[in-house]
């Protein structure tokens, strides 16, 4: 549940920290949200607690997936201006490259929004958006 006044204030100011603060797991990961060219852009700044393989070091696949799922949920809240956080029905994640010890970015695209269900695609990358670290798609229950 996101308070609509907080969402409107965040859109006005461009600072979405107050929205992230309402989702404990997004806050734990350290998700940052901002707008770029009128669309939300998500960042997972590098943090030791998101490491999966300490030898490489590489980001944990679960942290990458959790970040992308958060991005999709926040993107839907942003796009729909709805107080209800949608519920995930299914989530499908393809890992394409290992996530290096640096910031990870994500953008989402609402492929289809129906009355009850939305289909969202997510792409996560590091240095080059055309070389994704992972892509994902998910269905969310809206009502």
């Amino acid at each position: 549940m996101v308070q609509l006044e907080i969402l409107h204030a965040a859109k006005e100011s461009g600072n979405y920290d107050s929205i992230i603060d309402q989702i404990p797991y997004a806050k734990l990961l350290g998700v940052v949200m901002r707008e770029e060219n009128g669309q939300p852009l998500f960042e997972l700044p590098f943090s030791d607690h998101n490491i999966g393989n300490v030898h490489l070091p590489a980001l944990h696949g679960g942290a990458i997936g959790g970040f992308m799922e958060n991005a999709a949920l926040l993107h839907l809240v942003w796009a729909r201006e709805s107080a209800e956080v949608p519920r995930t029905i299914d989530f499908s994640l393809d890992f394409l490259r290992s996530g290096k010890a640096q910031s990870l970015y994500a953008r989402c695209d609402i492929t289809k929004q129906g009355k009850r269900v939305a289909n969202v695609r997510m792409t996560a990358w590091q240095e080059d958006e055309s070389k994704p670290v992972a892509v994902a798609r998910a269905h969310f229950l809206l009502s």
């Binding site: 989702i23 404990p24 959790g66 989530f91």
Partner: peptide
């Protein structure tokens, strides 16, 4: 753990936690 919650009103764990648990 309350830090892993996705929706504070319901207290339900975030799907991302499930992703880490199932992947590992």
């Amino acid at each position: 753990n309350t830090a892993l919650v996705g929706n504070p009103r319901s207290g339900v764990l975030h799907g991302g936690v499930m992703t880490s648990l199932i992947d590992t």
